[in-house]
Amino acid sequence: MPTDRTRTETVELGVELLEHVEDDELPLAEAMDRIEAVTTSPTLARDILDAAEDRGVIDREGATVRTRRGGSFVRFDSQVLTREGEFSCRRCGTGITTGHFVRFGTGELGPFGSSCVRKVLGRE
């Protein structure tokens, strides 16, 4: 999953993804699964969790992540774009011809297949 994002941009995108957690709490493993859509680097994943906690986005307690801001859901009609082409899903690696991209204020995340974009956003 090559990307041209800087370390700072990656952390910002990860924090923004966590800001959009719709659940009041989720297991740390599930939060990490979502963060892996942004980066597979353990160091960057830890930086994302630390930054999100420092900014009041989440609270970590043991193996549980709690949202502090109540989460705000991603609007599929305006924040998820589809593009046709030859892509590999960023989450599972499957070849796809329709890529789903999530547009955040800090950048775009994707491509994902139709079911993986729902998993990354916590809709499945």
Rank of each mutant, 00 (worst) to 15 (best):
D23F: 15
V15R: 03
T6L: 12
S88E: 13
D59G: 09
T82M: 09
V57I: 11
V57C: 08
V65C: 05
G122R: 08
P42H: 13
G110Y: 10
D59P: 00
R75W: 13
R7E: 12
H20D: 03
C116G: 03
L49N: 00
M1I: 08
D77N: 11
E22H: 05
G110C: 04
V117L: 07
D50I: 13
T97M: 04
A45D: 04
Q79D: 12
T43D: 09
V120K: 00
I58Y: 10
G70A: 01
S78D: 11
E61G: 06
D4A: 10
A51Y: 04
G56I: 14
L109Q: 04
A52N: 02
S78Y: 14
S72W: 03
E86S: 08
T10E: 08
E61I: 02
R90V: 10
D54R: 11
E22C: 07
G85W: 12
T40C: 10
S72A: 11
E16S: 02
E84I: 11
E9W: 06
G110N: 05
T106I: 08
E108C: 06
D50N: 12
V15Y: 08
T98H: 09
T3I: 10
E16W: 11
L18R: 00
F101D: 00
T94V: 10
V74I: 13
F73V: 03
R69E: 12
G99D: 14
R103F: 07
H20T: 03
P111L: 07
E86G: 01
L121D: 01
R5C: 07
A45C: 06
G85V: 12
D33T: 10
A51E: 15
A29G: 05
A63L: 15
G105D: 15
T10L: 11
V102C: 01
V65I: 08
G107C: 10
C116N: 04
R5G: 08
R68C: 02
L17Y: 06
A51K: 06
R34G: 03
R34D: 04
V57Y: 09
L44F: 14
E30M: 09
H20G: 00
V38P: 01
I96M: 05
V120Y: 00
L109A: 04
R91P: 00
R7K: 09
I35L: 07
V11G: 01
L121S: 01
L109E: 04
F76N: 01
R5M: 15
S88Y: 14
R46E: 15
T6C: 10
I96R: 04
A63P: 07
